[in-house]
């Protein structure tokens, strides 16, 4: 019996020593385990599998064959890869130019004290709770040349309602759907960040005689810098990987004019069943999205974890 008591006591002592050592080192790595496991299962392992498949010839049915660098050597011959990158970049840059200002203004406005804010916010943020696929199907119908909005507008303003029939028109539609669906999300982020800006900055500026615009450009914008960088990274990565809206609304058409690289990857892998070539495109996209995000964070100072409230 006494042996047992002694053993227990020493165990407790050891645990206490461990705890104090732990406190010195910061929280245990074990706390990160659930997140790491989930990330590994759903991101790291699939990415590794895609890298492996990119060295294989596989139609998804017959046993895959290792072909070394053949798929990668064939990279310049992948039909429309260059064109798809171009279209993806056009869409990406334009959607940042559209969504960032809208999201920013929406967020800053929603952070204000107006009484009707809640009502408008609910309306603005509605698209966020809808399924992306479902709203894309609805948009497809809405854009019909005869029975959709363009058809009704052409009855009033003339024209033939052929909005989806040209590259410019189709891209405009995709930008509009993107802005409608995603800008409120960024609005929400900016609202949170704008609410965190201390009121005393505005009070001081007001005493110095700064007007509404001066306060926005000299206080709000600089204070939101880190949030803006984060939003842009979100938009870039989202633009490099997102494709369901394009796949449903335009299917890359007319005649491949909105065929972005993620869509090309999907079609190559799952419509033509060239899983090796599809994986090559996927790896390129992963590298591009990851690389751009890292570069952006580095050169914008986002990774320095500096506060915009220093000295306050």
């Amino acid at each position: 019996m006494s042996n047992l008591v002694a053993a227990l006591t020493s165990a407790r002592k050891k645990a206490r020593a461990g705890r104090s050592r732990q406190a010195a080192l910061g929280p245990s790595v074990m706390w990160a385990l659930p997140a790491v496991v989930v990330y590994a299962l759903f991101a790291l392992i699939p990415i590794l599998v895609v890298v492996v498949i990119s060295f294989m010839d596989w139609d998804g049915v017959r046993p895959p064959k290792f072909v070394g660098l053949a798929n990668w050597a064939n990279l310049p011959n992948i039909a429309f890869l260059g064109g798809s990158v171009q279209i993806m970049l056009i869409l990406l840059v334009c959607s940042i130019l559209v969504q960032l200002p809208i999201g920013l203004l929406m967020g800053v406005w929603a952070a204000g004290p107006q009484r009707n804010r809640a009502v408008f916010c609910t309306i603005f943020f509605l698209p966020m709770v809808l399924s992306g696929v479902a709203i894309s199907i609805v948009w497809r119908q809405i854009m019909d040349a005869n029975f959709g909005i363009p058809g009704q507008f052409s009855a009033i303003f003339g024209g033939n309602g052929n909005v989806l029939g040209s590259m410019e028109g189709a891209i405009m539609v995709l930008l509009a759907i993107g802005a409608w669906g995603s800008a409120p999300f960024f609005g929400l982020i900016f609202q949170g960040a704008a609410k965190g800006i201390p009121q005393m900055l505005y009070d001081a500026a007001a005493i110095d005689g700064a007007g509404r615009f001066r306060r926005f450009f000299s206080i709000t914008l600089p204070q939101l810098k880190a949030t803006i960088v984060m939003a842009v990274i979100f938009m870039v990565v989202g633009g490099l990987t997102g494709f369901e809206t394009i796949m449903i609304v335009t299917e890359g058409g007319p005649a491949r004019k909105t065929l972005t690289t993620p869509l090309l990857m999907y079609y190559t892998a799952f419509r033509d069943y060239h899983l090796g070539t599809g994986s090559v495109i996927a790896v390129l996209l992963i590298l591009a999205a990851g690389g751009i995000a890292v570069l952006f964070a580095k050169y914008s100072g986002f990774d320095k974890m500096e506060s915009d409230l220093e000295g306050m």
């Binding site: 497809r140 019909d144 040349a145 005869n146 029975f147 033939n160 309602g161 029939g165």
Partner: peptide, 16 residues
């Protein structure tokens, strides 16, 4: 029709 490329297939576009 000049606008065929914006005509959806089926019950919401070509059939009506």
């Amino acid at each position: 029709a000049d606008n065929w490329a914006s005509v959806d297939y089926g019950a919401g576009g070509s059939e009506p």
